[in-house]
């Protein structure tokens, strides 16, 4: 049966998610760069930027965490895609063996096919469980990223307030806060989109 692109198979959804979330990696890398820049400006600004230092430290930490999490998510999504394909091949093999079994009348042949069918059934169950396990891991990682992005948005709001006290450096720090806020929103949106995609498709 052909895959309906309006209702894609599980392996396609997982591969799409892996690709889509990889773009979040680039955004997290931008935040890491923005944190390094903010740190450098902070040193130049001296005392005026004292209140901003914990914010740049937080940005750096959250960027590094996000990069690690997104890499882990990518691995989980790829594993889901890989095992789903394996399961699809096992499903096809099972159907074919079953078809042959229906066509043979000989008891010995039928029994030997029964052994093969049992082995393939076991494989299918194991593959199904493996996909479910990877899916649980992936959902937990998506939750973690989403939580972090919420924290980033509230820190970005504090950063805007702190920027007011940085004198001539205010535009730089406002831009840092803006980068942080935009990045968090982009990543959060991708996380939600991919979660919805997984929730809408059924593992057969």
């Amino acid at each position: 049966m052909a895959a309906d692109l309006e209702n894609p198979d599980f392996y396609v959804v997982a591969a799409v998610a892996a690709a889509d979330l990889s773009a979040a990696l680039e955004v997290a890398e931008d935040v890491s760069l923005a944190a390094a820049n903010a740190n450098a400006i902070g040193h130049r600004a001296g005392e005026a930027a004292r209140g901003f230092r914990p914010i740049t430290d937080f940005m750096d930490e959250v960027a590094r965490d996000t990069i690690r999490l997104v890499r882990d998510i990518n691995q989980e999504a790829l594993a889901i895609s890989r095992v789903s394909i394996r399961k699809m091949r096992s499903d096809t093999a099972w159907l074919r063996f079953e078809n042959v079994k229906k066509r043979v009348n000989n008891d010995t042949t039928s029994r030997s096919l029964e052994t093969v069918l049992e082995r393939v059934s076991l494989m299918i169950r194991e593959e199904h469980q493996l996909v479910e396990r990877h899916l649980r891991n992936l959902m937990a990682l998506l939750d973690e990223v989403e939580l972090r992005m919420r924290a980033v948005r509230s820190v970005a709001a504090s950063a805007r307030v702190e920027a007011i006290h940085t004198g001539d450096y205010r535009p730089h720090f406002e831009s840092v806060a803006e980068t942080m806020d935009n990045a968090a929103e982009i990543i959060r949106e991708r996380v939600l989109r991919n979660r919805r995609m997984f929730e809408q498709v059924e593992l057969r």
Binding site: L5, P8, Y11, V12, A15, V16, A18, A19, D20, S22, A77, L78, S81, R82, I85
Partner: peptide, 15 residues
């Protein structure tokens, strides 16, 4: 196949 599909989707959508 699975590695190829995931890699391709970095560049273009399926359709």
């Amino acid at each position: 196949f699975s590695s190829m599909l995931a890699s391709i989707l970095h560049f273009v959508p399926l359709d």
